[in-house]
Amino acid sequence: MAEESALIEVKNLSINYDDFAALRDVHLTIQKGNITALVGPSGCGKSSFLQSLNRLTDLIPGCQTTGEMILGGKNILSPGCDVLSLRRKVGMVFQKPNPFPQSIRRNFEIPLREHGFSKLETTDRMEDSLKRVGLWNEVSNRLSRSAANLSGGQQQRLCIARALALDPEVILFDEPCSALDPHASGVVEDLISSLRGSVTVVIVTHNLAQARRIADHLAVFWVRGGSGTIVETGATDALFTSATDPDAKSYLTGIRG
């Protein structure tokens, strides 16, 4: 396990969709350089929580967040927060691979040029991050071909590389393996594991075995009184063997959920 120091402090977070309280009173500390897995049944606010970490919740009409999320001394949720630079620091990889249906090279040029990198830096960063996700040898001779022609697993690794190219502090993964075949899923899982120490990872997964394999910390979400909340957090091994919350215990031991 990497060295412990808090990178993100979530205090009293609640998320509402119009009148519906999706998430209520969530407290969580996310450790720097660690992998934190968010687990729990569907509809308990895991994805909403993840999306509020880079303010992607802003895109959802009627969505309101209250509480505090402190990253680098600043509250992510405050109206004054510079969302564009926040998203540069907090990258995201989605459930379904979503490369831009343009050339592989353009997939890097669009974000990197937008954030002010020169052409030369863009090429360097593209090569570095493609090597980091093990895709360089597969695509180096077809960078000007469409990313849409890659396989699902390759597309997902491209998306991870694209996020890494911006040198983020945190990468959020929203069930990154669930749309992939078992082989590609294994490759992506190993890749996420390899990020430990250099990037802070927060991952939503429905695959408990996966959470157990890769996560340092676990946050178990559950529905309480009609709204999602975190019922237990802790080190992965400890939680799998001795969770105290009855719901978390039965979920993690496979009795329920």
Partner: peptide
């Protein structure tokens, strides 16, 4: 255009005009 594609563009910190001109229109 799939909403996930536009969410991906937003998640990379692209400004609204860049999302539209560089991602939505080419797509």
């Amino acid at each position: 255009i799939s909403p996930s594609l536009m969410a991906g563009a937003a998640a990379l910190g692209l400004s609204r005009p860049a999302q539209i001109l560089q991602v939505a229109i080419p797509t």
